[in-house]
Every structure is written in C-alpha cells, then in structure tokens.
Computed example of a mutant assay.
Amino acid sequence: MGAVINDRIDVRISKEQKELVKYASTLSGFKSLSEFIVYCLYKEAKTIIKDNNEILKSLEDKKIFVDAIVNPAEPNSKLKQAHKNYNKFLSEQNENTDI
C-alpha cells in the first residue's frame, strides 16, 4: 500500500469567521479545527458534484443546455403573447401605485 501524501490549502478568514468555525467544530466533536474544515469542505464538494450531476447527468445533456443558452430559439406566438400580457400587467400595477 502506498503512502498517503497530504497537500496543503492556505486560506485567510476574518477573526469572527474563525471563531464561528471553531465553535461549530467544538460542538460537532472534532479533534481539531483542521479536521472539521477538511470534513466540511469534502462533504460540500461531494454535494455540489452530486447536485450538478443530477441536473445535467451526461455530457450530452450539458452540451444541449449550453447550446440552448448560446443559441436560443426564436420565441413562439404563445411566448410573445405572454410577454405582452406581462407588460400590460406591469403597466396596470404602475398605474395603481401612482394614486
């Protein structure tokens, strides 16, 4: 079995942030502040990756999504009508607040 090689991350935070994190670490029962920070970072990173993969599961899904953003389709008649209705609603709201 190979040796575990530790890497390092340097972070600067405010005194208030450090005190808050230290308090949370103590409440959670971690042996050290570093252990708590590594645990939280790892857990949050895994959650972000999981959430990202659930929304756009495949590379093809991601390509389709980006293409839709970069090259949007022309609005159809229903969307154009909805836009007109929304603008009418806004102007009616503005008229009512001017009173």
Rank of each mutant, 00 (worst) to 15 (best):
K84G: 00
K43H: 11
N87A: 11
D10C: 07
Q93I: 08
K46N: 06
N87D: 14
N85E: 08
R12G: 00
S77K: 14
V66T: 09
I49R: 13
L33W: 06
K63A: 12
T97S: 10
P75N: 04
Q93P: 00
L27F: 05
L41Y: 10
P75E: 02
I9F: 08
M1A: 11
L90D: 04
P75A: 03
I49H: 10
N6D: 11
L56Q: 02
N6R: 14
T47S: 11
S32K: 09
K78F: 03
T26N: 14
A82D: 02
T47H: 15
N6F: 13
I13M: 07
L20H: 13
V21G: 00
L59C: 09
Q81R: 08
L41V: 07
N96M: 14
K63C: 05
Y86L: 06
Y23D: 08
K63N: 08
I37T: 03
Y39D: 12
K18E: 08
D67Y: 13
K22V: 05
S28E: 12
L79T: 11
C40P: 00
L59A: 15
K88G: 05
L90R: 03
E60V: 08
R8A: 07
Y86C: 02
D10G: 10
F36M: 01
F65I: 03
L79Q: 15
P72H: 04
L59M: 12
L41P: 01
L56G: 04
N6E: 12
N94M: 12
K15G: 00
V70D: 04
L27I: 12
N87L: 15
V70E: 09
I9D: 02
S32I: 05
S34R: 14
P72T: 04
N94V: 09
S14D: 01
Y86T: 02
F89I: 01
S25A: 15
N96D: 11
S28T: 09
L27H: 10
N6Y: 13
V66H: 09
E54C: 08
N53S: 13
A45Q: 13
I9N: 10
V38E: 05
P72M: 03
R8I: 10
E60I: 11
S34D: 14
T26I: 14
I49V: 15
N94D: 07
S25Q: 05
E16V: 07
K84F: 07
S32T: 15
Q81A: 14
N52G: 15
E16N: 05
P75Q: 02
K15V: 06
E74N: 10
K84E: 09
F65E: 03
L20F: 14
Y86D: 00
V21C: 02
N76G: 08
Y42W: 07
T26V: 11
Y42C: 05
T26L: 14
K46L: 05
F36E: 01
L56P: 02
L90H: 05
S58I: 03
E44A: 10
Q81V: 04
E92A: 11
C40W: 04
I69N: 03
F30L: 01
K88W: 04
F30P: 04
A3S: 12
V70F: 04
D98E: 15
V4I: 14
K15M: 03
K84S: 05
G2S: 13
D98N: 14
A24T: 07
K78P: 00
I48C: 06
V11K: 01
E16L: 10
K62W: 08
V70N: 07
